[in-house]
Design a protein around this nucleic acid. Structure first.
Lengths: 139, 139
DNA sequence: TTCTTGACTTAGACAATGTCCAATGTAGGA
DNA sequence: TCCTACATTGGACATTGTCTAAGTCAAGAA
């Protein structure tokens, strides 16, 4: 995390208490919080932090490439601090839990040239869905 | 489309003017409308149709497996009438246009067993992103 | 054909998520 | 320490979607 804050400072980020708290909430977690969850956790450490600041800060972290924005359903976006390792997601279709997963091969290569319709394809996201062990046990 | 309406009637769907209009709006299109766009187009044919009915009807069509719900960004969901052919999506990251694409191989096989963490994986969606030819030309 | 009834539709309130703005506060350089 | 450009705040507003109570109507029954 100090790594993260260090990188951000080098890029001219002004370091405020609010930004530090948001970065700390995300740092090292392996779950993927919604903006609201980030706000709730940030509020525990800095009670007066506003929703707008959390949204702003998350947006900045995404722009800077330090955090990924994931929208698996049509609901709230989730924020994935694991932006520096190529990975995809496995989502529980019942409880919404997300796990990072690593694939065999490059999914870009599965899209044949004639299926690209002249697009400059630059990115691919793969989302697997199914029941997690917990939900499967209680169905 | 009469195919679609026929299938729905066989499943006990009560056929109303509103449902017919929504089905007609979706029928045969190769773009993927948002609920709001469906409502706008339905209103041209049946001015008094309400938003709630459009949402209800789209939801029913999705439950019945006749239409796919696609959420590519965190914005409005889009509805894809091409539910009977396995395909994935190619999205323009500037203008949001969506094209259906067909892949080589089964993307499920790219997820190794140890990466499944006990999930019963049942579905995979792959979304390619890039600039469409039009947007690439004007950048 | 007409009647009946339960499913369908409607308008609008409400909910969830996100964005914007003007006023205020403050990090960090001079 | 002081300045000032940038950051934060609270709240209004926007977008997308859901819910409900009351009215309407499709389709089977008679």
């Amino acid at each position: 995390m100090s790594d993260l804050l260090e990188r951000l400072r080098e890029r001219g980020w002004r370091l405020t208490a609010q930004r530090r708290v948001v970065a700390e909430v995300l740092d090292g977690v392996h779950v993927h919080y919604t903006a609201d969850e980030v706000h709730a956790r940030a509020t525990e450490r800095l009670p007066e932090i506003s929703r707008a600041t959390v949204y702003n800060t998350l947006g900045e972290l995404v722009s800077l490439g330090e955090v990924l924005e994931v929208s698996t359903d049509g609901r709230a976006k989730r924020y994935d601090p694991n932006a520096h390792h190529d990975h995809q997601h496995l989502v529980c279709s019942r409880c919404g839990t997300i796990r990072d997963v690593h694939l065999h091969g490059d999914p870009l290569s599965a899209l044949p040239e004639p299926e690209r319709y002249g697009f400059q394809v630059s990115e691919v996201t793969v989302t697997y869905r199914g029941l997690c062990p917990t939900c499967a046990a209680t169905s």
